[in-house]
Amino acid sequence: MNNRTVSLLSDEDLASTVLCDLKRVVREYATAATESTCPQVRQMFTDLLNKTLTAQGQMFEVMKNAQMYELGTSALQTDINKQIQCYTQTQQGTNEWLSNVHGQAGQFAQSNTANTDQQMNNMMQ
């Protein structure tokens, strides 16, 4: 009896499938980690994410060395700089918005505290 199995997929197709699954699992672990409210669960998903990222990187290197992975073209530095500038502007806008929301919440809390103090003083008189 022959113990040899025959695969319907090539090594490249099998490796590509594994790489795609590792990428998907990375996304799912990242989502799970960011949505976890329990610190221990968050740490578990973070550890799993890091291990899966390592496995994905190793699979990519094996595929690249075996010429199973087609590398993309290099991006122009001007395109990279344009994206960095766009993301920086978005980050600055988000930070300003958060600062305004936080400031308004703080002002609201202060005004409510002052109103409550005034009401208490009026009641005591």
Rank of each mutant, 00 (worst) to 15 (best):
M1L: 03
M1G: 11
N3K: 02
N3V: 06
T5N: 01
T5L: 11
T5S: 10
L8C: 05
L9D: 02
L9N: 01
S10N: 02
D11G: 10
E12Q: 02
L14T: 04
L14N: 13
T17S: 11
L19W: 00
C20R: 15
C20F: 13
D21M: 12
L22M: 03
K23G: 04
R24M: 12
Y29L: 02
Y29Q: 11
A30E: 04
T31R: 13
A32M: 05
T34I: 04
T34D: 11
T34V: 01
T37G: 08
T37R: 09
C38T: 08
P39A: 01
Q40E: 15
Q40G: 04
Q40F: 07
Q40V: 04
Q43L: 14
M44Q: 10
M44Y: 06
T46C: 10
T46F: 05
D47A: 13
N50R: 14
N50W: 08
N50I: 07
K51V: 03
T52M: 02
T52N: 04
A55G: 00
A55D: 06
G57Q: 06
G57K: 05
M59V: 00
F60N: 08
F60I: 01
F60H: 05
V62D: 05
M63G: 02
M63K: 01
Q67C: 09
E70R: 15
T73Q: 14
S74R: 14
A75I: 07
L76M: 11
K82G: 03
Q83P: 00
I84F: 02
I84N: 06
T88V: 02
T88S: 13
Q91T: 15
Q91W: 13
T94L: 15
T94Y: 15
W97M: 12
W97P: 01
L98R: 15
L98P: 02
V101S: 10
V101N: 13
G103V: 02
Q104W: 09
G106A: 15
A109L: 04
Q110I: 09
S111P: 00
T113D: 08
A114S: 09
A114T: 13
A114D: 11
A114Q: 11
N115R: 08
N115D: 04
N115S: 12
T116Q: 10
D117V: 01
M120C: 04
M120Y: 08
M120K: 09
M120D: 07
N121G: 05
N122D: 12
Q125E: 12
Q125H: 07
